[in-house]
Amino acid sequence: MTQQEEPSCSTHCPCCLQESLIITDSIFLDSLEEVEIYFFRGSTELLELIALLSNIAVILEKIIIRYEPSSAFLLSKEVREEVDSMCHPNIKVEFTVLSCQKRVITIKKIASKPQRVPAAAAIKVHPLPQIDAGPLQINCSMATDVDAGARGADHITDLPDDVLHSILARLPSNADAARTSVLSRRWRRVWTGVPALSFRYDESPSSSSAQQDQLDRIDAALSGHAATATVGVERLEIDVPYGVRDARVARWLLFASRRLNGELRVALPSETWCSRSRRWPPWS
């Protein structure tokens, strides 16, 4: 790969690829850090795009290639090796099956806010890394024959994001998942990819100020999530056994309208909505 590319839109820019292939307004390919390709079937256009990215996206760390189970047989060893070989060694290539679970989950659409792009391919742009960012991971996740005997190897950090989400989703609470942010840079944003956010309190704190603190923590979690997440949430559940002010609920609904792709459940004691002159929903 000796060819030098202009960082701007050159003749090799994927603009000349099928328009439907790339859903983005304007991106600078050389500032991409991570690229996810959905519904990969090994087509030449996508292979060209990968080669192009490897050539000019100098800080690209990771390409995640997602394919449907039914396309697995199209992705022969040769195709995988081809993809691997055309990528710069600093780029980590991950092949992941599109989980059917994810498609099942989107049961009730509450707002037309698809964060996840359903078409042929999507490119996600992340902010530029800080200058003092640690050394890049050069491990290729397809290679499983790491020195097995090596004690103290960090296996978990190398797992694909999807798998980490599925691990974190099984922790007792979102707070447990969020705390993994402090483990290392790799873990900074992982928790925000967990598909469900759930805040469920069965017992009411004794004082009303403790209730407010609890609600403040829900709000902090939601805004923290909105600030760092690159994908939407598939389920949001808030269940508290005491009354909540309308303004707060309105904020939750605003979060849901912007970030939620799937199911919403807000459970509050019934008197919250029925009491006095308040009517819910407010537009009825």
Partner: peptide, 24 residues
């Protein structure tokens, strides 16, 4: 899990503050 902490002290402090709700 043998995870190496590659944050600086300052960064770690910043994240902990951001995530105060999770450390409660």
């Amino acid at each position: 899990f043998n995870i190496k902490n590659d944050y600086t002290k300052e960064e770690l402090e910043e994240i902990r503050q951001e995530l105060a709700w999770a450390f409660y």
